[in-house]
Simulated assay, not measured.
Amino acid sequence: MAHPETARDTLIAATEFGIEIGMVPVPIQKQQNGYAINTWLVPLLNAAQTLVTNDVATAEDVDRTYMIVNRGCSMGPLGLMDVIGMTTVFNVLDHWGHVNNDEQMLRNAHYIEKNFLDQGLLGLQTAHGYYNYPDPAYGADDFLSPPDISAASDIAERALLLAPAGQ
């Protein structure tokens, strides 16, 4: 991302350097916070975290769903949080939650703080976050495979335990 006073030669040199070290340059045509990736990544991570914070789904089920829809992805959004690091995830959710007065985002930040940071679980950095490393569940060969039919009643029971009475 350039600004009006960025020299053309500087942009070319930076682009060439990125290519030389194996990066894919993504030109940002207009200044904005977060470039391109954070514009879509923060809402994705926040939505995934909301499902966990609000007890809608487990981390594995959120990631499994994401990976089924996006075949070829090596991890889902909660695994990505582990890679980014829980401190960074907390800081981003807490900051934007306050800036935007977003109560759900603040609840998500609090969940990360209470369940990870306060426990010393920083994600990949400490080999523990949503997953345990070096062998996270999402890396297993059968992570996206249909379960054995014998698991059907246990899966259904998980849904029944959380269903409102009378449904």
Rank of each mutant, 00 (worst) to 15 (best):
M1W: 07
P4R: 02
E5G: 01
T6L: 06
A7Y: 00
A7Q: 10
R8S: 06
D9I: 11
D9Y: 01
I12F: 05
A14H: 02
G18E: 05
I19M: 10
E20M: 06
G22R: 02
P25D: 14
V26T: 09
I28P: 02
I28L: 12
K30C: 10
N33H: 02
G34K: 08
L44A: 07
N46M: 08
A48N: 09
Q49K: 00
Q49S: 12
V52S: 06
T53W: 14
V56I: 15
A57L: 03
A59S: 14
E60F: 02
D61E: 12
D63Y: 12
N70S: 08
N70G: 04
R71W: 04
S74H: 13
P77I: 00
L78S: 08
G79I: 12
V83P: 03
T87Y: 11
N91S: 15
N91P: 03
D94H: 14
D94W: 11
W96Y: 15
W96N: 08
G97D: 10
V99H: 12
E103P: 00
A109K: 01
H110L: 13
I112P: 08
I112A: 10
K114H: 12
N115Q: 14
D118F: 01
D118G: 15
Q119D: 09
Q119Y: 01
Q119M: 13
L121Y: 15
L122R: 13
L122W: 11
Q125K: 15
Q125C: 05
Q125T: 11
H128Q: 15
H128V: 13
G129W: 10
Y131E: 09
D135Q: 12
A137R: 14
A137G: 00
G139E: 14
A140Y: 02
A140C: 03
D142P: 01
F143Y: 10
L144Q: 05
P146Y: 10
P146E: 12
P146M: 08
I149Y: 13
S150H: 06
S150F: 05
A151S: 09
A151P: 00
I155V: 09
E157N: 04
E157T: 02
A159R: 09
A159E: 07
L160C: 03
L160F: 08
A165W: 00
Q167T: 12
